[in-house]
């Protein structure tokens, strides 16, 4: 295929599928391609294949943790949670505070006790924490792991304008693994990627990187803090 041979009809279709998957079409051409999805299964399959193929590019991006407030806003938009202080504290006592609540509370406690102490119940998940602080004392970040869920709280300090702090997982005998870029403030929760096992020997480090994280997948900036995971 040289640059001046015209594309075959099949190649034209393939290119169109790629353009639709990439969002490169507009106007009537876009409308026609979208309409074709529901009438031409082969074309629709080609578009899906392009989506799969190209998603590898996005999977290569360094994760960037979103601030916890983003999660709260999503809950509010879906009606899953009240906005903070949306409940009037002077309102009458809720049912669970009355006598029925006490009984329900007792059953709930009994159920939890049963789960905790029945022989088949999974062991309570091991917790770890790491306190990351710079030598100069101008920043502090706390990481808490319960099972595979890690919560990271920015306690003081923040990266310079145009810079980000990237979190690294250090385990003996392996290369550092990026856990992503920290939010600029607040806290966030993430699941530990598969392949990483929390243990006493593991360490967490923060490095100072260009905005969006290390462009190479390896830490490029100075490491500003390192801490061991310790049992909680």
């Amino acid at each position: 295929m040289t640059d001046d041979t015209p594309l075959t009809a099949q190649q034209e279709d393939e290119a169109l599928a790629a353009e639709l998957a990439l969002g490169l079409l507009d106007g009537p051409e876009a409308e026609a391609a979208v309409a074709r999805l529901s009438t031409d299964p082969e074309f629709a399959a080609a578009v899906r294949e392009w989506q799969e193929r190209l998603a590898g590019l996005a999977e290569g991006l360094t994760p960037v943790m979103a601030p916890a407030r983003a999660r709260q806003y999503i809950r509010e938009r879906l009606g899953h949670a009240d906005a903070p202080l949306a409940t009037d504290p002077t309102e009458g006592a809720s049912w669970w505070r009355g006598p029925i609540g006490v009984i329900a509370g007792f059953f709930a406690a009994a159920a939890i006790a049963f789960v905790l102490f029945s022989p088949d119940a999974p062991l309570p998940q091991q917790g770890y924490r790491a306190e990351l602080a710079s030598d100069a004392g101008d920043m502090a970040v706390e990481a808490i792991l319960r099972g595979r869920e890690m919560r990271i709280a920015m306690q003081s300090g923040s990266p310079a304008e145009g810079r980000d702090w990237e979190v690294w997982w250090l385990a003996e005998g392996s290369d550092p693994v990026s856990l992503g870029v920290l939010p600029r403030e607040g806290d966030m929760t993430m699941m530990l990627p598969e392949g990483l096992e929390p243990s006493q020997g593991a360490r967490i480090a923060l490095s100072d990187e260009p905005e969006g994280g290390s462009p190479t997948g390896q830490a490029t900036g100075p490491v500003i803090a390192v801490a061991n995971l310790t049992d909680m």
Binding site: A58, E59, L61, T62, P63, V64, M65, A66, P67, A70, R71, I74, E149, G180, V181, R184, M188, T189, M190, M191, G212, G213
Partner: peptide, 24 residues
């Protein structure tokens, strides 16, 4: 699902929008 995937999807929208508040 949010805990497992939000950092990756945030990276995707941030890469395109290049603006933190808008990406959020």
């Amino acid at each position: 699902l949010y805990a497992a995937t939000s950092a990756k999807l945030h990276a995707v929208v941030l890469s395109i929008l290049k603006d933190r508040p808008e990406a959020e």
